[in-house]
């Protein structure tokens, strides 16, 4: 394993700046978050931070708002991901054809993916407005009463999920579509030569080969949905009555509206743990050489 000194030097020059930056802004903050969470640390009180032991964590277990935010987050993630996955999967198959014009339509449908989430929240907030929102106009077209989309607790949750579904379904479609396209034609030909019917080919070949892509997109979407905050900020501010108070929103308001940094820190640590567990699965999926390709 000999490598010349020049090569070692070059490697160091190439690698160290990025790693240092990540150490400073990623690794250190995690440790710092733990440090903060073990302290009473408020910006609204003049007192200097002091050691609190596990106090903040104990409080978390008793905090109804925190428990509520966990369940709200879970609900949101479940609704959004499920809808995105089902829709995205079906749409990927719709687009998987060489029909004229379909490719252009597919590309156009991608536009929401990269739109500024804050503006997405803004426009859906506007469209869902009870008084003049265009969605309610559609609702009245069907002869129904206008709906209080953002002020009813059930509807508010669905509204936020709807905005998220609008933004991310095209992404799920794209991933599964790309996976579908990258499946080598020869496995299908082999299937036909082996005497499988088209239906058997779908169940025995296509679906198993798509599985890794489905898992990957599922985890990515789940992790991103867990940290969603922009839509809530624009559309509901966690209301009505905490119905849309997802964990990130509660954390944010605790830290930067109540300025209770110690308590927010303990939530941050909990959140990092949750996300790390999810990411583990993802990394294993990516690192797995047997991705079926």
């Amino acid at each position: 394993m000999s490598q010349s000194r020049a090569a070692r030097r070059a490697a160091f020059i190439l690698i160290s700046p990025a790693v240092l930056l990540l150490l400073a802004l990623n690794v250190f903050p995690i440790g710092f978050a733990v440090f903060i969470s073990l302290r009473h640390w408020s910006l609204s009180i003049v007192n200097p931070p002091r050691f609190a032991g596990l106090f903040n964590y104990q409080e978390l277990t008793l905090d109804d708002r925190f428990i509520n935010s966990l369940s709200v987050s879970a609900t949101f993630v479940l609704i959004a991901i499920l809808a995105e996955l089902v829709l995205g999967f079906a749409l990927a198959f719709v687009f998987n054809s060489k029909l004229k014009g379909l490719d252009t339509l597919r590309k156009l449908s991608l536009l929401p993916v990269m739109a500024m989430p804050l503006v997405v929240g803004l426009v859906w907030f506007y469209m869902l407005n009870e008084n003049f929102g265009v969605i309610n106009w559609f609702v009245t077209l069907f002869g129904a009463e206008r709906l209080p989309f953002l002020t009813d607790s059930t509807l508010a949750m669905l509204s936020i999920a709807l905005a998220d579904i609008w933004q991310w379904t095209p992404f799920v479609t794209l991933v599964i579509f790309a996976a579908l396209q990258s499946l080598p034609e020869y496995v299908f030909e082999a299937g036909r030569m082996d005497g499988l019917t088209e239906r058997e080919i779908f169940w025995r070949i296509t679906l198993p080969l798509l599985r890794p892509a489905i898992v990957v997109v599922l985890i990515i979407r789940a992790i991103d949905a867990v940290r969603m905050i922009d839509l809530v900020f624009m559309m509901t501010k966690g209301g009505p009555g905490g119905a849309t108070e997802v964990l990130p929103w509660y954390l944010y308001t605790t830290g930067f509206q109540s300025f209770d940094l110690g308590y927010a820190g303990s939530m941050a640590v909990v959140m990092i743990i949750i996300v790390t567990l999810g990411a583990q699965v993802f990394v294993r999926q990516i690192a797995n050489p047997e991705k079926g390709r």
């Binding site: 990623n26 440090f35 903060i36 867990v226 990411a279 993802f282």
Partner: peptide
């Protein structure tokens, strides 16, 4: 390992990092 460390930072939830980074 460095590679996977870098990959894993993709999943760092900004809202969890915003408190310590703000103080820093």
């Amino acid at each position: 390992h460095i590679f996977f460390f870098i990959l894993s930072t993709r999943f760092a939830p900004p809202v969890a990092f915003v408190v310590p980074i703000f103080l820093m």
